[in-house]
């Protein structure tokens, strides 16, 4: 694979994580338990959408085939999307949404921190801005996980079930192949396995504060990085891409 193709693929993987998560969060606007949380969830959705847009736009210039951020987000198929399977999981109840967000945040904070010193200046710049957002997201999701875990018996049980349910999908955030190895070797990207310690210590710390226990399931569901998704993604993309694809070539 050429250096450019590796970088392009890597950027798409980062972008797809954010795009799909933003889409899931966008589904929740007007459905939250309080007006304040409607505002917060819209904010998270917007941040991830902004990150996805910058990453797609840059990927498009690397590819140099005339595809902009809309073409990359709204015309690629389920098998071409390369997000980790965690982010495509349905919103479920509020605890599921928070558990999914928390696991992503615990990964994205060290990810963006490392990418901030990328030898690729454009990617470094995107990461610097994203790191600040990810830190705020982690604070938000951790606070809620602790409130739920250390709240009522019911919320404790729901938080534990949610964490247990999302946990096997978190492994996909750390899956690597030649693409990550190549961009990491070039100093442009990060080998995600190097983020695992930071992720594990964040999770352990918050799980303890939340009076929860670490998930014991050792099953790992990976495959998203090569397009082997769960069945949920196709439906999400069908909705997200429907209008754009019904009028290909139109300007909006």
């Amino acid at each position: 694979m050429s250096a450019n193709l590796n970088l392009f693929t890597y950027l798409l993987r980062l972008a797809d994580d954010n795009m799909v998560l933003s889409q899931r969060l966008g589904e929740l606007v007007s459905w939250m338990p309080e007006l304040e949380e409607d505002i917060a969830i819209a904010n998270l959705s917007l941040d991830h959408l902004g990150q996805a847009t910058s990453l797609y736009a840059y990927a498009g210039t690397i590819e140099a085939a005339g595809r902009n951020e809309d073409a990359l987000a709204l015309t690629r198929s389920e098998r071409e999307f390369m997000n980790a399977v965690l982010v495509e999981q349905p919103n479920g109840n509020f605890a599921d949404t928070i558990a999914r967000q928390f696991l992503v945040d615990a990964y994205q904070v060290p990810l963006y921190q490392a990418l901030s010193s990328s030898t690729d200046q454009t990617l470094g710049g995107i990461a610097q801005k994203a790191e600040k957002e990810a830190r705020y997201h982690l604070e938000y999701s951790s606070t809620w996980l602790v409130r739920l875990g250390d709240g009522t018996d019911l919320s404790h049980d729901r938080a534990q079930s949610a964490l247990d349910r999302m946990w096997p999908f978190a492994a996909d955030l750390f899956a690597t192949d030649d693409v990550e190895a190549a961009v990491a070797a070039a100093g442009m990207g990060v080998d995600p396995t190097t983020l695992r310690d930071s992720f594990d210590s964040t999770v352990a710390r918050v799980v303890e504060l939340a009076t929860l226990r670490m998930p014991t399931d050792t099953y790992e569901r990976t495959g998203g990085r090569t397009g082997m998704h769960t069945e949920h993604l196709g439906h999400l993309l069908a909705e997200m891409q429907s209008l754009h694809q019904a009028h290909l070539g139109a300007t909006w």
């Binding site: 966008g26 959705s45 959408l49 996805a52 009028h247 909006w252």
Partner: peptide
């Protein structure tokens, strides 16, 4: 929101 035709409009 989930069907906006471009990322900017979304």
């Amino acid at each position: 929101i989930t069907r906006a035709p471009s990322l900017r409009r979304k």
